[in-house]
């Protein structure tokens, strides 16, 4: 009997010590891990639409609550600011729009003056060779310099209307967030 008690006590103590140590390390590494995973996934897109900054947009990222979904959980968006000497002069954020095959994710770079700097497609399920052509520079370049108030329209790709309008509504969504939360962002 004494043996069994001893076994249980020793095992429980070891398990408890392990649990304590692990939750401690987890707490410490949680933030760096979040930073690394976001950086790995989003940095290429962010770098494509923002230039000329001296900060780390991923490190300085802000999260804004923009509403609630049907279950009542908060819907958040992440804003990546581009700064020069501490002043934010542009931001990058992702907008989503309904394309032909599903939601198209677009990273949009917007300047403080309210103009689109550049866009980059982050995710899509469009038809290869047809709708996927929205990724080409010849299409994405059309968004440069557009104002962010009101509807966003450019010439679509012929034969890929839904994909083109999907990108446009994604850029519109991103733009509308910047207009609405201008105070918090800049």
């Amino acid at each position: 009997m004494r043996d069994i008690v001893r076994m249980i006590v020793v095992l429980s103590l070891i398990a408890a010590a392990s649990g304590l140590a692990l939750s401690l390390i987890y707490r410490i590494t949680k933030a760096p891990i979040a930073y690394q995973t976001i950086r790995f996934v989003k940095e290429p897109a962010v770098k494509k639409v923002l230039t000329g900054y001296d900060n780390d947009p991923i490190l300085d990222r802000k999260t804004l609550v923009v509403g609630t979904d049907d279950k009542g959980a908060p819907v958040e968006i992440t804003i990546f600011p581009a700064k020069r000497q501490g002043e934010t002069f542009a931001v990058a954020l992702e907008g989503k729009g309904k394309g032909f095959g599903g939601l198209i994710g677009v990273m949009v770079g917007i300047s403080k003056e309210g103009k689109v700097l550049a866009i980059g497609i982050t995710s899509h399920s469009e038809t290869p060779g047809v709708g996927s052509r929205v990724e080409e520079a010849s299409f994405t370049d059309r968004f440069q310099g557009l104002g962010i108030e009101g509807a966003v329209t450019v010439d679509g790709i012929s034969g890929a209307t839904y994909s083109s309008t999907g990108v446009m509504s994604a850029v519109e969504q991103a733009a509308s967030y910047v207009v609405k939360y201008k105070e918090e962002i800049f």
Binding site: S18, A21, L22, I25, I33, R39, F40
Partner: peptide, 23 residues
């Protein structure tokens, strides 16, 4: 069993540290 718990704990520590600083 005890060895496994001890070893596994340190493996998780290595996992977390690598994820945070050597992605």
């Amino acid at each position: 069993a005890s060895f496994i718990v001890i070893i596994a704990s340190f493996v998780v520590i290595v996992e977390l540290i690598m994820q945070a600083y050597f992605y």
